[in-house]
Amino acid sequence: MSNITDESVSEERPSFFVPRRKQLLVGRRGIVASTLSVVIFLGGLVAVFYLAPGGAAVRRFYFDRHDMWEAFVGNHNAGLSSVGIGIFTNIWVFLVSEVFILIFGLTIAWTRMSKSPVLLPFRILATIYSDIFRGIPVLLVFFLVGFGLPPLGIAVVSYQSVAVYGCVALTLTYSAYVAEVFRAGIYSVPHGQLLAARSLGLTNATTMRRVILPQAVRTVIPPLLNDFISLQKDTALLSLLGVIEAVNAGTIYQDTKFNSSGLVVASLLFLAMTVPLTRFTDGLIARDRKRRLASS
């Protein structure tokens, strides 16, 4: 061995161990650390809530166990609607609207992107539609549809239940947004895919259905999910048309008993609706990813 004299060459043996003070985070201890971190963080939040000067009043007004339960199940004799039953109105309005929104949204996107000269008037119409319904607040669309259609006295159209008008209003507004999401998704598919499909002699419609849309759907799911979560929440606007859904039931309880616990119950129920949806979609994306990465 030669004698090294250059001072820039280190003669020390390097150590690769995690420093002692960080060893708490290694291996199985990491689980302990993360549990501890959660407990401390949440505990801190709860402590602030309990120790705040007005904490007791807020707890009584928003989180009273007795009021929460009464608002949830309702009280027929006292004229109190049940928040727990009301949420089912939100759920079916959401589900029905969702189906129509997907259909209309895709139709509008498709129309706006079509090239056929025959479809020109529809293309213009679809563009105007998108502009109008993305521009008007949902609230106003609710009022326009809910209070505007019945007085017209047109057969069928003017004689629907208020909840149906809610579905119409939501569909009108959200289709415009969802159409834009679809359009962005369709444009995100590389142009080469279109060229390859057309060069095989697939028609425009088949190319869309078999090549472009299946690929667009993957990019579209997260933003679409965002819109649907937002849609679930906007079903609360039904209360403004007088439909007794979850939020309206909570408000009635508040106005009668001067206690807002019913609104907290409604919030929890909305959470119970949205969280499974996000989980489900994440699972769907993960499964698709795995399927495509896995060898056959």
Partner: peptide, 8 residues
Amino acid sequence: QSFNLFPH
């Protein structure tokens, strides 16, 4: 040139 196979 870029194959353009359908990835799905």
